[in-house]
Amino acid sequence: MTAPWHSAALALGDDALVLSHRLGEWAGRAPVLEEEVALANIALDLLGQARILLSLVGDEDELAYLRDERSFRNLHLVEQPGGDFAHTIARQLYFSTYQRFLYERLASSDSEFTALAAKAVKEVAYHQDHAEHWTLRLGDGTAESHERMRRACEALWTFTAEMFQPVEGLDAVDFPALEERWLDSVASVLERATLTVPDGPRSRAWTAGAGRQGLHTEPFGRMLAEMQHLHRSHPGASW
């Protein structure tokens, strides 16, 4: 595990795996059945990405189920608990916009990630579309939905700078340009949703880039315990 692109495969694979698990937590709890199915389908797309990315590095099951917290390279944004539905939508807006622009870039450059990015970017475009429509609906909805969407966008804002820290092995990506594009896109959606761009910091001293180094926030350990418990307790279990 020494090639630089291994680090990148882990970073992108862990983002997809962890967010997939967080979205899967909505199964049985979403506001309406259609939305539960939508979130599960988005989770499935992300799981497909994770399987391919992690398989580039090693055995997908071992990497997903037998690594400890410090070995995961995902962003803090994706490991945060789902919160209310507005929090989940705010995260989807932030992350799917980032992932779409990142994969567009990777699809047009020649690397180990080209084929996956070219395929996944078409799916991610639907994730972004889904997040945008819900942001508009909640932001420009009732006083209650507006307030919840505002709170969610502000709460997760502090995790958004980390997405644009350069990732080892993704030299083709101009992260400052990606960040500028992301800010423009998110600001335009928030504006149409009658929301304002949060004015708080987009990182904290101890969080920026920490996820990519294996330093995670407290809820992540509990999530991993649940995600890995079955495989660790019953190695090789299948059904």
């Binding site: 199915v37 988005i42 639907y126």
Partner: peptide, 8 residues
């Protein structure tokens, strides 16, 4: 009605 149905 919904952007995602019985399958993705």
């Amino acid at each position: 009605l919904s952007r995602f149905s019985s399958t993705a």
